Simulated assay, not measured.
Amino acid sequence: MARVAIVTGGSRGIGRESAERLAADGFAVVVVYGGNEQEARSAVDAITARGGQAIAVRADVADETAVAAVFDAAEETFGGVDAVVHAAGVMVLSPVAELDLDALDRMHRTNIRGTFVVAQQAARRVRRGGAIITFSTSVLGLALPGYAAYAASKGAVEAITLILARELRGRDITVNAVAPGPTATALFLDGKDEETIAKLAAQPPLERLGTPADIAEVVSFLAGPARWVNGQVLRANGGIV
């Protein structure tokens, strides 16, 4: 029986790359998307075209009823849940003095409440030997101006992740966060000029932006062989201090 992964934010960017990588690793995948059915369908088609198994389920990750329905769909279609990759997130950049508080509330709802809701279902329903993977950001350590609200929301993600790892003692379930550095996704590139992108790409000693495939490699490791890595934040950022 195939192992089963739920990937939120699975229709684009890091989430989609992670979904396709896990499918290549042999997981049956539930691609969870927020609004763009066409992109989700494209992700499923890409997986099934390579002989993998996948379905797409729409859900607001902050809605506990919708998220429970995602886990129901995984169990009904594939028999259970072994890995949960919570890649859905919202990022709005602004100095503290200028941030629209509606944007703060939106990030809080998706990034904090959404992570908590997904983690809650995962804690109840992931099978023994499973893995729960959340997403933080390397910006937490870099303290870049303009990122206060976003970084604050991801600080909450790290707290939830590390505490959940300890709460699941005796279940043989790992819980870790991936904290990407600058990664070439639509979310990251949106609104940035070439000079800004070039400056960010020059930061790591490897002197390039990360790619979604770089991050999916880490997700694959944590979802599969990394059984002794638990309660950690893995900063996948090319060596930015």
Rank of each mutant, 00 (worst) to 15 (best):
R127C: 05
D100S: 10
M1E: 13
A59H: 06
T48K: 10
Q53M: 13
H108C: 06
A40F: 08
V85S: 01
V30P: 00
A143V: 13
L142D: 12
Q203C: 03
A119V: 05
Y147W: 12
F135Y: 03
N176Q: 01
G130H: 06
A28K: 01
R227S: 13
V32Y: 05
A156F: 05
A56Y: 06
D72A: 12
E17C: 09
A87C: 14
G9M: 07
D105P: 05
R58V: 10
L144V: 14
A213E: 13
A119D: 15
M1D: 12
F71E: 01
G79N: 10
M91I: 14
V31W: 12
G80E: 12
D172A: 15
G79Q: 07
G114P: 07
D25Y: 01
M107F: 07
V219M: 00
E64S: 15
L168N: 08
Q203N: 05
V233E: 03
A151R: 06
I160V: 14
G129H: 09
A226M: 01
T161F: 01
G130D: 05
L222S: 03
Q203V: 12
I133E: 00
L164W: 05
I55P: 05
L140D: 02
E39V: 04
P182V: 08
A143T: 13
G114R: 09
V7H: 00
G26W: 04
A143N: 14
H108I: 09
A236S: 10
G191Y: 06
Y147E: 09
G52E: 04
L234T: 08
A186W: 07
G80V: 12
A131W: 03
L140P: 01
V67I: 15
G9P: 11
G80Q: 12
A179L: 02
A74N: 03
V233T: 14
A159K: 00
I215A: 02
T183G: 00
R41V: 11
V29G: 03
A223Y: 06
D100H: 13
I240C: 03
L206I: 15
A5F: 11
A119M: 15
E217D: 15
V178Y: 00
D45K: 11
G224T: 08
W228M: 13
R235L: 10
G13N: 10
Q121G: 09
T48E: 14
L101R: 13
A87G: 07
D82T: 09
V70P: 02
G170C: 08
N36T: 12
R50V: 04
I197L: 14
A177T: 00
G15F: 10
A152Y: 11
A73M: 08
I173A: 02
